[in-house]
Write a protein that binds this DNA or RNA. Structure first.
Lengths: 237, 237
DNA sequence: CGGCAAAATTGATCTGGGTCAACTGCGTTT
DNA sequence: AAACGCAGTTGACCCAGATCAATTTTGCCG
């Protein structure tokens, strides 16, 4: 569903207090720039399941994810879905070709974003090459992740896919939550299936199997990695 | 195999005569910049099957593909291969995270590249934001292609994969060769299989099947798209 | 032209993961 | 606390595509 009414805080938040600044695109800005930047963005909230933008939409905004997790996906005409990634705080969304988002983005659970009007943001970048360099850096990193994911989708078995997913998801959460063998999984089994190119049944069976052999423990809202080394081995890293 | 001896032309070619300039990263440079740029790159040739760089290599150069086709791929420890893309003239290679190429690149048939030392190229970009913008544009386009390919790998049937491949490959060749229903396929069946997440046998059988039903004709070094509309339908675009 | 090796095709069979269907558990509403 | 509904799990069966195994075709070199 698309949000028809979203809460908009009429500013009041300051970039310099932003907890995810160091991870985000803003990390490249100095104090003076940050103060100017502050006026370009506005915080917007979304509730669980809301669609932030759709693939066919014309891009009018860029988004900086502040809180929560989003699923990024594409649909085939017959409804098959491929999740092309999950966005975490610090991720920058909205770069695109030909003026259209080429994937859709839903909030998984409550989400806060910093939304920038495309035109104003474009002007701001124009005279700040270091910001562009930072954006490019993030794009190249994403591209690298995308290629890794192609390997997973095209060449790995169900067990390898799931084990790899646990490890890379834990890895991605590390800068945010610190190192831990408890891996929260805010997304549904269906989301995981659509991310890994599997069915929900296969995901569920593989979870159970990995638990049975003692690699993980399935806990409420996630898993616990009991044997990370074994998981690495299963992932055929 | 890695090339131990490659022919290096001691310059003599001029950017302004470069046939693929308009498609490449250089399209953003003016006449004066081009003259300066010319001294940064040197043309290097590779023969069929040669490896231009490997995924574990530390990046020391950027490459602008001038002639020929390259396969870009990643290997799993047990030898399974996923081709993450094919590079065509105009494509720019070498952007990376953490200083290493994160995929390998082989020449398919004879290849000519314009090779730039990383440091010199980096300095040149530094003071030319429009070049950076152009590079970013290409990265974002690649990212979009990568996401499309994830959908193909994760959610499409063998027949859909092959039909989609014919159509998108033809599409990519269009700016270079002009529109045509004759689609050259310089890569091997194994390459196609590793690109589509299939086996060589399934690729071969699917080719034969599509020929039998009159969608394509298998010709020397490629296929002819007899019924593009049917192909679109099979691709579930 | 003939003889090889590599690439591609075709056939027979197998299997990992999909499909279909039932059931379980748990959070929400009344 | 009963009743509902949705997410997740489990079981039985099936099939698209993998695997294994020959051929056939193509390209190449003496």
């Amino acid at each position: 569903m698309r949000s028809s009414l979203v809460a908009i805080e009429p500013n009041g938040h300051f970039c310099k207090e932003c907890s995810i600044r160091e991870f985000s695109v803003c990390a490249s800005l100095d104090a003076a720039e940050l103060r100017e930047f502050e006026h370009l963005g506005r915080r917007v909230h979304f509730t669980a399941g809301e669609t932030v933008f759709s693939e066919e939409d014309i891009t009018t905004s860029f988004y900086n994810l502040l809180e929560g997790v989003m699923r990024l996906y594409k649909l085939l005409p017959d409804g098959r879905r491929q999740i092309v990634g999950f966005a975490l705080p610090g991720d920058f969304l909205g770069m695109n070709v030909s003026g259209r988002h080429n994937f859709s983005a839903d909030a998984i659970g409550p989400v806060t974003v910093c939304q920038f009007a495309k035109a104003a943001f474009g002007r701001f970048i124009e005279e700040r090459p270091h910001l562009l360099r930072r954006i490019n850096e993030l794009a190249v990193r994403e591209l690298s992740q995308a290629r890794d994911h192609m390997v997973l989708l095209g060449r790995r078995s169900a067990e390898e896919k799931v084990a790899t997913f646990f490890l890379t998801w834990r890895e991605r959460l590390m800068p945010l939550n610190g190192p831990s063998n408890t891996v929260p999984l805010p997304m549904s089994r269906q989301d995981i299936a659509d991310y890994l190119g599997l069915t929900i049944e296969t995901v569920s069976r593989t979870f159970t199997k990995l638990e049975r052999v003692g690699v993980i423990e399935i806990i409420h809202g996630g898993i616990s990695l009991l044997d990370p080394a074994r998981a690495e081995a299963l992932a055929a890293a």
